[in-house]
Every structure is written in structure tokens, then in C-alpha cells.
Design a binder for these strands. Structure first.
Lengths: 105, 105
DNA sequence: TATAAGAACAACCATTTGGTTGTCCAAATG
DNA sequence: CATTTGGACAACCAAATGGTTGTTCTTATA
């Protein structure tokens, strides 16, 4: 099986984004995370697994509870990519500006 | 069918991210975009459609060619969400810092 | 100790996704 | 005019996705 898990795919799902948002206020166990979502705890656990696999959240056992904590440093990959794309995109306009200034004379 | 197209889902696919990167250097037609990807032009056209539907690229007819241009302002939604999540996440540490300073005395 | 609660594991299911091929049409080009 | 070329449309397919239920196991708790 090819490990296709990446951060971009992880944040693509709205439920997972909600989980991240919820966890950004502080660590919670799986049951707590699942509250207020209209889906089964098992479904939540699957989302948690995906988020964990790509490093967005970390897990720690505490008695019978599995405590999840956000590790949002992993989101750098996303902002880096957006920033890089936009940098190139903006350079395009700068080149056009330069061209327009040169031909104006 | 529910319109589930959003920017997060659009950038989840690596091929689509490559397309965006390619277009951030300047507009291209569908055939040009498809070059160097090992997949069919039809597959590329489908990706283009998705990117267009969520506003990341715009299309304009030019003779028989369909010219695609990046509209990376739409990526704000992504950076905004990441920024907001991280803001909350950092506040968590600030609260902890405050607590530690207060109890140290 | 009996029971409730947190979570893992597995099997299953419908829908979506990312890709394919084939046909067809309009616009360039020899 | 004949032929490429750019692209649209449709049908189809395998795999992935997001969800379900049922069982089991361990840890708390009344």
C-alpha cells in the first residue's frame, strides 16, 4: 500500500478541519472530540487516525483514554506551498509592469 | 447533488497543485498544461474543471483554445484558516506561560 | 463485583475520485 | 479542400473515501 497521506489531503475534509479547530483550543480524548458531530465515534476515530498519520495531531495514552493534541507546525507545508505559488504569480505582474514601463517611453 | 467543491479539496490533489504551480508562471491552454504529466488530456481537463469551479483558475476562449489563468486570490481561504487555527493554538501556550509565571511566585 | 465507558478491530456499504477510451465538433493549417 | 489539432461529451472502471454496525478488550466507577 502506497502511503498517500499528506497534509493537504488531511485538511481537505471539513470534518477534519473542525477537529483541528476544536483541538487548537487544547487536548481532548476521542469521545470528547466526537461530541457535536452528528457521526459515529468510529468515524471520528478514523479521521483522528488520518490526522495522526500526517503529524497534525499527536496521541498519548492516559489510562483508558487516548488524548489527542494538535501539532499545527505541520501546517507549514500548506502555507509554504501557497506562499511560493503566490510569489511566482505576483512576479508575473511585476514583469508585466516592467514591460509596460519600458514601452511607455 | 450537493456542490461540495471547495478550495481545500481542490488543492488536495498533487496533480492539481502541479497545475496551479505551472499556471502561476503565466496562462496556458489545456494541451500545454497537460504536457509533462503522464496522464491523458481528458484527465487534465477534469482537473481544470474542478479548479475553475472553485475559482482558482479562470478560463477564456481564444479561437479553438481554452486559455487558463491562475486566480490565486482564492487561496486566501486556505491561509486564513491556517492562520486562525494557529492563532488559537498559540494562545493556548500563552495561557500556559501565564499560568506558570503566576504560580512561580 | 457488576456495570458503564473509552477505544480498537473488522466487515461491510454507497458514493466519490481519478483515471481510461471512444466519438464528435470546430478551428487552424498544409 | 483535406487534415491536423484543441477540446467537449459520455460511458465506463478500479480504488479510495467517509460512513455504518457489531464484537471485543481494558479501565473506571457505582
Amino acid at each position: 500500500m502506497i502511503e498517500r497521506r499528506d497534509v493537504f489531503q488531511a485538511i481537505a475534509d471539513p470534518t477534519r478541519r473542525m477537529i483541528i479547530l476544536k483541538l487548537s483550543h487544547g487536548p481532548l480524548n476521542i469521545t470528547k472530540i466526537g461530541e457535536d458531530f452528528g457521526i459515529s465515534k468510529q468515524a471520528i476515530a478514523k479521521h483522528i487516525k488520518i490526522l495522526n498519520e500526517c503529524g497534525i495531531i499527536s496521541m498519548s495514552q492516559k489510562g483508558r483514554e487516548q488524548v489527542c493534541e494538535a501539532q499545527l507546525g505541520q501546517l507549514d507545508e500548506v502555507t509554504d506551498w501557497v506562499t511560493e505559488s503566490r510569489k511566482l504569480w505576483n512576479q508575473r505582474f511585476e514583469k508585466l509592469d516592467k514591460f509596460l514601463k519600458e514601452t511607455k517611453q
